[in-house]
Amino acid sequence: MTKRFIITGGPGSGKSTLLAYLAAQGIQTSIEAGRAIIQMQERIGGSALPWRSPEKFAEQMLTWEVYSYELAKDDICLYDRGVPDILGYLNLSQLPIPEYLKKAAELYPYQPQVLIAPPWFEIYCQDEQRKQDYPLAVKTYQAMCDIYTELGYQLYELPKASVEERADFVHKVISLQVEN
């Protein structure tokens, strides 16, 4: 049975860099839904973009996250966000959370230990897909803390350290769970 671990947090906090490093070590990882959906929607001229239609964007993220969940085949898989992030995103956007999204969060559980990347001003940058400013990145981090705590997950804050040190921290959290 696959043990599914989420790495979440606000944008620009080093999650994707960390996951790429861990993938290079041979750990199965997922691709972040948000950035991939934005790139695809921009390429096709779609409207499921967070600044055009947050609800459509959330729908696309749900499809992506469930598909990523189903694809896991290794003993351990690390996710660049997960289904609960969508609920956090809707809360942050002050939009209602549909019942089917709440059900999805129940039907697709992850390990109770969630790794969360804190806001990190020194590495934060905006780009074509990351249009949020740093204060919004901080609010996103808080929204993720709130939703994961509300759903009963235990948060482990990643250190603001080198990717190697962060990877060591991830390995320690995973090994604690794998041993149990």
Rank of each mutant, 00 (worst) to 15 (best):
A48S: 13
A72L: 08
A48E: 03
V83L: 08
A36F: 07
G34I: 02
C77K: 08
R35I: 02
P96Q: 09
A24W: 01
P50A: 02
A33D: 02
A58I: 07
S68C: 08
I97Y: 10
D85C: 11
P98D: 05
P96H: 11
L90H: 08
D80Q: 10
A33C: 12
E42D: 07
C77H: 12
K73V: 11
V83I: 15
L71G: 03
V66T: 13
S47M: 10
S30T: 15
T63W: 13
M61G: 01
Q25T: 05
L49V: 10
K56C: 04
A24D: 12
L90D: 06
E65W: 09
I27N: 06
Q28F: 12
I86F: 07
N91K: 13
D80A: 07
D74S: 15
L92K: 08
P50F: 07
Y79E: 01
Q94K: 15
Y21P: 00
R52H: 14
L71Y: 03
I86N: 05
Y69F: 14
Q28S: 13
E65Y: 09
M61H: 01
T63F: 14
Q60F: 06
G88W: 05
D85P: 02
L22V: 03
P50R: 01
A72T: 13
Y69Q: 08
L62C: 01
L101S: 02
P50I: 09
V83H: 01
E70P: 04
L101E: 00
A58T: 10
G46N: 00
G26R: 10
I31R: 14
